[in-house]
Design a protein around this nucleic acid. Structure first.
Lengths: 201, 201
DNA sequence: TGTTTTATTGAACACCGTTCAATACATTTG
DNA sequence: CAAATGTATTGAACGGTGTTCAATAAAACA
């Protein structure tokens, strides 16, 4: 069965080649500006062949969508080494912000492109995991006596909304020009203002 | 000059007819799924004729973009009757949330569709006005002794980020399924959690 | 060596935004 | 009124899009 194995390997490699090409174009130009023909010609392939490996354009997109969420979750999980839950909580927000800064294109793909439809897909399951992770950290903070009188779920949602709001404004370039400072600085200061607010609770 | 006047009137009316048709389709299907041909055929017009009234598809979009911001700003300004600045501040967030709920399509068009490019266009000037309005209300709160030790600009940015974050999650349908409650309820509770946080400051 | 399976191609279809020569209509001029 | 001018409208055409599919090439198997 060596032949079958090799064939399978080749198929996986072709799959990867297409995905690599797609990633480059998707992240650079966004969903609508990426065409199957572009993806194909970038690897000297015919448009039709793409459909041997992927059902349609959306399936390619969802692959990258998942990819982004996995990358994101791994950066969240990297904070598990931080002992103090509250410090971990604060760092989680910064991971969000840093991710949006360093992987703006992924962020757009993951959170701001519409094409992905409702809460379908594997990517969203990973996102769900990220949310539960955040909720858990907040719970640990609450177990230590922090955030007294605040509901864990709504606190999670609020935290998420805040950082996502900051990152959304940043990724859509709605932040530059608001004030005189750079967008990166604004993100951090905006977040720190939030932390200052929650600090006393 | 009665003839010229009538002609001008007819031109304005045609402009409006196209915009009405475009609004219906844009708000229903979003930017990419709206085609010039659809807009035209919905009013028994030829595709080419649209270009007699609008430079291109983007110009039509921007018209609606502006429209949305004007509608939004008017709802913000309606709160000027509220005497107490802090009450006005709290109500401003609710206006945001209510707008996203009642005009989800506009919200998507205004804040979440990419096609509009950087901070160009008249719509963004109106948005800038809205932000300055919020900043002013926060300043009034601060003049009353609230939000002590917090920078007005960052507080404005944070407030904006929070409500925009809530609304973005809602409009992209990322909120349903998080917890057991309805999205509308979650928005309000998330916002109230924020208010509870800021209340003591 | 056939034969069958697998992979690849490129033409074709129906759509898209946009342009533009041709046309129809309305108004003004002779 | 008729001719000329300007104004509005059309639909074909251009180069693009996602997707399908019959034909074909390549590889694996018998």
């Amino acid at each position: 069965m060596s032949v079958a194995k090799r064939k399978e390997q080749e198929k996986i490699e072709m799959h990867k080649r297409i995905l690599d090409s797609a990633r480059k174009i998707f992240l650079e130009k966004g969903y609508e500006q990426t065409s199957i023909r572009n993806i194909a010609s970038a690897i000297s392939y015919s448009p039709g062949s793409i459909y041997f490996y992927f059902k349609d354009k959306n399936e390619i997109f969802h692959e990258l969508h998942k990819e982004g969420f996995r990358l994101f979750l791994s950066q969240m999980k990297a904070l598990d080494v931080i002992e103090d839950p509250y410090e971990r909580y604060k760092a989680l927000g910064l991971v969000f912000i840093r991710f949006a800064q360093n992987h703006t294109d992924y962020y757009n793909l993951m959170f701001l492109v519409s094409e992905t439809g409702k809460a379908e897909g594997e990517g969203f399951q990973i996102a769900q995991g990220a949310i539960e992770h955040l909720s858990g950290v907040i719970q640990q903070c609450q177990d230590q006596g922090r955030f007294r009188g605040l509901d864990n779920k709504y606190l999670t949602l609020m935290t998420l909304s805040l950082v996502h709001g900051i990152c959304s404004l940043y990724c859509k370039d709605r932040m530059s020009g608001f004030f005189e400072k750079s967008s990166e600085e604004l993100m951090i200061h905006g977040y720190e203002t939030f932390i200052a607010l929650i600090e006393s609770k």
